[in-house]
Amino acid sequence: MVNEIIEGFLTAVHLISTGDPTVVEISVRAVLVSGSAVLLSMLWGLPVAMLLGLKRFPCRFIVKGFFTAMLGMPTVTLGLLLYLFFSNAGPVGPLRLLYTPTAMIIGQAILVTPITVSFVASAIESVDPEIADLAKTLGASEIQASIAVLRESSRGVLLALTTSFNRAIAELGVVLMVGGNIAHSTRVLTTTIALETNKGEIALAIALAIILLVIVSTLTLTVSLIQRHKMSRPAELEKMRT
């Protein structure tokens, strides 16, 4: 077994270093699907997060609690619900979205929306409450003032983006159930790793697992470096001052 793993690693290194077409195709599709899902979740999640972070209205805590609870939503449960929704007998069956990348994108976007909403709403709440009023006294409209607050909470937004993407690209349940793991169409990193492992093709599975880890850790590291750079800039300027 140990030999198989070592052999798998060596083959994985070979597949990656030679730019194996299958590996490249699956990796690119995974990034595109998860990236699109995160953008879609931001599209509908940001306004909700801003509403929760900036406004006080009845039942606000219930809405917030709902999104917090949904953070732990099992992916297979969501996958099953979406399968029923997209299937021929489902409400949007005639659109024939099941087993397409579009269904995978929508599924992942729904999965990561609680992350977007909860993280961004919390980041907005942590911003100095006077920032919105400050912007308004400087002539900003309600929307411009909200954007000023969002800009102040950019670290939280960046964290939401990173966490959402990592959650999306690493999940299996939703993409497997609504994507179907069809070669050259809906096959992504996680579904292929599961499939190849079941088939005993450890080398390809390890190669894809390494790529998945590299993508996730590179993104996280890059974001950390950007934040570190932004934080250290004032310190550098402070040094210039003294």
Partner: peptide, 28 residues
């Protein structure tokens, strides 16, 4: 709001440079 402005007791500043803080209202 465009004809009136206010300085708060607790200084509220955007988390950026002095220039961008002062230029905010002009950009608006």
């Amino acid at each position: 709001r465009l004809k009136t402005t206010m300085v708060f007791q607790k200084t509220a500043l955007f988390n950026t440079t002095v220039y961008k803080n002062i230029a905010y209202g002009l950009k608006i």
